[in-house]
């Protein structure tokens, strides 16, 4: 990894994220095995695979929650620099324009909805704690500015009526929405969603599909998602990558993936059974 630090990287025009030969081992278990795929700008990309295929591991590798992995993850960041994400600390990833949600939401229950969104803008605030202590002009102006922005996003997601309510006690569908709204606060170029439709009912899932496309159009960003709900994935994604046991199976349009024999065998089950 260290020999990569000072290298300059290239990306094909129109590509946002390029994962090359990613491998991740936990002791004897190879969770991700020599995986490569790329995500284009302004696209919704699905990562699918049966349980234990290593999807979340891939997410944790991209967002640098796991160290000691092989391969490189090239990203075109906010300043249009081509960088290797492996050189970035997990806490700095969001600054590069890459933000994620979690399977189990991980919001702050004892804060209001709007304050939860403001955490998403943490890295955008310029004031420091001295400014906060004295509530300096800049600090209060920033606070007002990002509150307005948060409200705008909540309106866009049609949950602005909840802005001052606590997150605790909100239904699961709303929590998922707040999680997605929070990612939008950081002006991301790529949003990574870990099972956004899990636990949602059918109406909520349909609503979510529409929302995904709206986010892509309005915020001009790409979305990478892991999902079990095949209908949802096939309906919303531009391209899909299928993996099994951490290994690459196929990559292409939803139709291509649906018809791919390896995918059918691994994921959807064999026809003749």
């Amino acid at each position: 990894m260290s020999d990569n630090t000072n290298k300059s990287y290239v990306l094909k025009p129109g590509t946002l994220l390029d994962i090359q030969n990613l491998s991740m081992r936990f002791g004897g278990l190879t969770a991700v095995n020599n995986l490569s795929f790329d995500i284009k700008e302004n696209e919704i990309f699905g990562l699918i695979g049966p349980n234990g295929a290593g999807k979340t591991t891939v997410f944790n590798c991209i967002t640098q929650f796991y160290k000691d992995k092989d391969g490189i993850i090239i990203f075109n960041n906010k300043k249009n620099e081509i960088i290797n994400l492996n050189d970035i600390h997990v806490e700095k990833i969001i600054k590069e324009g890459l933000v994620r949600t979690f399977q189990n939401v991980e919001l702050i229950k004892d804060l209001s909805v709007i304050d939860n969104l403001l955490i998403g803008a943490h890295t955008l605030f310029k004031s420091d704690f001295i400014g906060h202590i004295f509530r300096s002009k800049r600090a209060s102006e920033e606070e007002t500015f990002y509150k307005a922005k948060a409200l705008e996003i909540l309106k866009f997601m049609k949950i602005d009526y909840l802005k001052d309510q606590y997150v605790a006690g909100q239904p699961y569908g709303i929590l998922k929405k707040i999680g997605i709204a929070r990612t939008l606060m950081s002006n991301p170029k790529l949003i990574i969603l870990d099972e956004p439709a899990a636990g949602l009912n059918e109406t909520e899932t349909t609503e979510l599909s529409k929302l995904m496309i709206q986010i892509k159009e309005n915020y001009k960003c790409s979305i990478l998602l892991v999902e079990h709900d095949m209908g949802f994935v096939m309906g919303v994604c531009d391209r899909i990558c299928a993996i099994n046991f951490g290994k690459f199976l196929a990559l292409g349009t939803p139709d291509y993936i649906k018809r791919h024999p390896d995918v059918q065998e691994a994921y959807l089950g064999r026809d003749d059974e």
Binding site: T63, F65, V90, E91, K92, I93, I94, K95, V99, R100, F102, E106, L107, I108, K109, D110, I119, G120, H122, T123, R182, S186
Partner: peptide
Amino acid sequence: RSNSSAQAMGV
């Protein structure tokens, strides 16, 4: 409340 979520938000 959540170490990893905070890290992902840049805290």
